[in-house]
Amino acid sequence: YAPMALLEGGTGMGTTSVAGGSPLFQWARAIVRGAQERAKPSDQRLGEFADSRLPGVQSGLFAERPTYPALEQIRLEWWLSKTREWLTVDSPHVRTLLGKESPEALSARLIEGTKLADPAVRRALWEGGLPAVQASTDPLIQYVLAIDADARAVRKEWDDKVKAPTDRASEQLAAARFAAYGDAVYPDATGTLRLTYGRVEGTDVPGQRIGAFTTFAGLWDRATGAEPFNVAPKLLAAKDRIDPNAVMNMAVSSDTIGGSSGSPAVNARGEIIGANFDSTVLTQRNAYGYDRNVNRSVIVTTQAVTTALRDVYGMDHLVAELGVPAPRKARR
């Protein structure tokens, strides 16, 4: 799991775990792999480079998007440091990633030298194909070329030993569920747009009762000034302006799965009341079956968003645009 998550992503941590989510690195990998994969028939490529998905890859590569070199360097440095920490310095994967360099020096060299922040450079490399990629002197392109075979090997091992057996077991489970329930149970996690429903309610887990709501008062109560309860300084500075009873998050008994983050939560009146962003730990079993008794999605409320925009960041113009009434003078 660790090599796959750190070198390739896509195991539940998401591809943003690779290179700390650096857009520059993701562009470099898309350019390198796109050049390699497009030389193959569509059905023999990595799934993300099939003909049907290439327009999406291209639009992401060619789009104007700001990058911040200092942040990019931090992301790469964090990723390289954590990969070395978790896989250890003796791992061949780490030797491939770092060679004789330190995470700090390598990340600085790559970010300072790359030209991939320029969409015209990315377009030229993409349209130039494999010859252009192999001839490129861009350090980030050359780095991805150097580590790509190792990352691909990790991905193949994962696919062969984990994904393939899991997929076969999932097919058997789906067949058994259909034999037992027929079309009375809807297909899940098919990648299609769907609507799910549930109640705002707490839940019982072994030895603990989890309430339906968390408030800003609960946030202050847990704040210790140290990880993982180190509240952002700007939020902490606004404590006296924030209603302690304002609801931050709520638990909902909806049927969700990984990939549902960002989905709007809508009440019976059609009003948006929040956005799904997490789930309780027992909800992980939802990949195989929905259990109404324990399944809880975690929703950040619109009240929390309004509170942050208005009382923490002072973005009254955006709050007004969202249709929220102006705050009373006493709150300012």
Rank of each mutant, 00 (worst) to 15 (best):
L318E: 14
L193A: 11
V32R: 04
V231Q: 01
D167K: 14
V133A: 09
A30G: 00
D255L: 02
R38K: 03
G9W: 00
R222T: 05
R269H: 10
V144N: 02
G20V: 03
T96P: 06
A153S: 06
A268W: 10
G20H: 02
E77F: 05
T215F: 00
L76Y: 06
G262I: 14
L116M: 05
K161Q: 15
V89T: 07
L76H: 00
K161H: 13
D160P: 09
A30S: 05
A39R: 10
E227I: 07
P206K: 15
Q284N: 13
N276I: 13
G258F: 01
Q284H: 12
L309C: 04
T280E: 12
W86S: 08
S170F: 09
P165I: 06
A179T: 01
R332Y: 13
R269F: 10
P187M: 03
Y1K: 14
Q26V: 08
Y197C: 15
D43A: 14
I147K: 00
W79R: 02
A50P: 01
A175N: 01
M4L: 10
D90F: 04
V294D: 11
N245H: 07
R109D: 11
N276K: 09
Y181M: 03
T224W: 02
T214S: 03
G10N: 00
P139A: 06
D316W: 07
Y1P: 13
W220G: 00
A304F: 03
A30Q: 00
R75L: 05
L322A: 11
V294H: 13
A169C: 10
G191S: 02
T192F: 09
W220R: 00
D51P: 06
D43Y: 10
D148Q: 11
V154W: 03
A212D: 08
W220I: 02
A35N: 07
E37P: 01
D204K: 15
A146Q: 12
A174Y: 06
K329I: 14
E37I: 00
V185F: 02
W158T: 01
R155P: 01
L6T: 03
K234F: 13
T88Y: 12
L125P: 01
N293M: 15
P92M: 06
S81T: 07
A70I: 13
W78F: 14
P55A: 07
W86L: 12
E157N: 05
G314A: 05
N276E: 13
T67V: 15
T302A: 12
G207I: 07
D311C: 09
M315P: 07
W79Y: 05
T67C: 13
G262Q: 11
E227C: 08
G274C: 07
M4S: 03
V162R: 12
G56I: 12
V89D: 12
A30F: 01
R331P: 12
A212E: 09
K161E: 10
T137K: 12
E48L: 10
E48T: 12
S279Q: 15
S107Q: 05
A320T: 11
L235G: 09
I272A: 11
A164T: 10
Y1A: 15
P3M: 08
A135T: 14
V154K: 04
T301V: 06
R168G: 08
V185G: 03
V305F: 12
P3A: 08
D167R: 11
G262C: 14
P3D: 06
E37W: 04
N230P: 07
A265G: 07
